[in-house]
C-alpha cells in the first residue's frame, strides 16, 4: 500500500520521474538516470541508474539493469540491481535476480534464480567453474565462494523453494534439504557427538567403568579425550560437504538455465 502511495505521489510530481502510462507500449531500449514508473508495457531492455517501478498494471518484458527495482506488476526477464529488488504482493517475476538485497513479499510470484553476491558475481561464477574443473583448485576457490553464498541465500531459499517447488528438480532439492539437516548437526557437533556416543556406541558406557580404576581420570576427564578425538574427524567430514554443498544449488541452477 505504501508503494501505491509513492506511485501516486511521484506521478503527481512528474518532473522528477518518467511515467509510462497504461495506454503506452514501448518496444526497444529504455535507458536513463531517473526513476521510471511503468504502468503500461515495455518490451526490450531497461537500463537505469535509478529506480524502476512497475505498477500493478505494468508489464515489463525486458532485461533490466537498475539501481533498484520495485515490482508490483509483471516482470519477465533477468534483473540486475545494484541495491535492492522488491517484489510486492501481487507481483509476478519470471527470470533471474541478481542483487545484494532482495525482498519478496507474501503473495508475490517468482520463478528463477537468485544471486545475492556482491558486485563481482561473474568472476565468482568463473571461479566456481574453475573449481569444478580442477579438483585441486576446489579447495582454494570453494571456500571464498561458499561463505558468502552460505550467508545470504539462507534468507532467500524459502521463497525460491516455494516458487519453483512444483516445477523443477525435486530430487536435487531433497538433497539440499538433507544437506541442510547435516549442517544443523555440524553446528551442534559437540552436543551431537556426545549424545551419539551415549546412544550408539557401547564403549562410552564401558569407559566410565574403566575410569574409576585410575583415580586421576574423573568421568569428566574421560569424556573429554574421547570427545576431542572424534570431533576433528567428524568436523573434517562435515566441513567438506558444506563447501561442495552450498555452491551446488546455485551453481547448477545458474549454469543450467
Amino acid at each position: 500500500m505504501a508503494t501505491t502511495r509513492q506511485h501516486t505521489n511521484q506521478v503527481q510530481t512528474p518532473e522528477t520521474a518518467t511515467v509510462i502510462g497504461p495506454g503506452i507500449r514501448i518496444s526497444g531500449r529504455v535507458s536513463g538516470a531517473e526513476d521510471l514508473h511503468v504502468e503500461g508495457r515495455i518490451d526490450g531492455a531497461v537500463n537505469l541508474s535509478e529506480t524502476l517501478y512497475i505498477a500493478p498494471a505494468g508489464i515489463v518484458a525486458a532485461e533490466v539493469e537498475a539501481h533498484a527495482v520495485v515490482v508490483a506488476g509483471v516482470l519477465v526477464g533477468n534483473v540486475t540491481a545494484r541495491d535492492c529488488v522488491t517484489l510486492h504482493a501481487g507481483a509476478k517475476l519470471v527470470g533471474d535476480i541478481h542483487a545484494p538485497r532482495i525482498v519478496i513479499a507474501d503473495g508475490a510470484a517468482f520463478r528463477g534464480n537468485i544471486r545475492m553476491g556482491g558486485e563481482v558475481p561473474p568472476p565468482r561464477a568463473e571461479q566456481r567453474q574453475a573449481a569444478r574443473g580442477r579438483p585441486g583448485g576446489a579447495s582454494r576457490f570453494g571456500r571464498p565462494a561458499a561463505r558468502p553464498a552460505a550467508q545470504t541465500p539462507a534468507r532467500v531459499e524459502p521463497p525460491r523453494a516455494r516458487a519453483s517447488e512444483a516445477r523443477s528438480e525435486a530430487p536435487r532439492r531433497d538433497e539440499a534439504r538433507q544437506e541442510d539437516d547435516v549442517t544443523v548437526v555440524v553446528r551442534h557437533a559437540a552436543v551431537a557427538d556426545e549424545s551419539e556416543r551415549r546412544t550408539r556406541r557401547p564403549t562410552p558406557v564401558a569407559e566410565p567403568a574403566r575410569t574409576p580404576e585410575p583415580p586421576r581420570a574423573p568421568p569428566v576427564g574421560a569424556r573429554e579425550p574421547g570427545a576431542k578425538a572424534p570431533p576433528p574427524a567428524a568436523a573434517e567430514k562435515k566441513k567438506l560437504p558444506p563447501r561442495a554443498r552450498i555452491p551446488k544449488p546455485g551453481k547448477r541452477r545458474v549454469h543450467r538455465r
Binding site: 511515467v19 503506452i24 536513463g32 531517473e34
Partner: peptide, 27 residues
C-alpha cells in the same frame, strides 16, 4: 488519466505505441 512522461534523462531507442498523451522531455 495518467500521463505518460519521458523524463529528461531518459533515452528510448525503439518503438512507442499507444493511445494516450505523451510528453517527451528526454530522447
Amino acid at each position: 488519466m495518467a500521463n505518460t512522461v519521458i523524463g529528461s534523462t531518459i533515452v528510448i531507442d525503439g518503438e512507442i505505441t499507444g493511445d494516450e498523451d505523451l510528453v517527451v522531455r528526454g530522447t
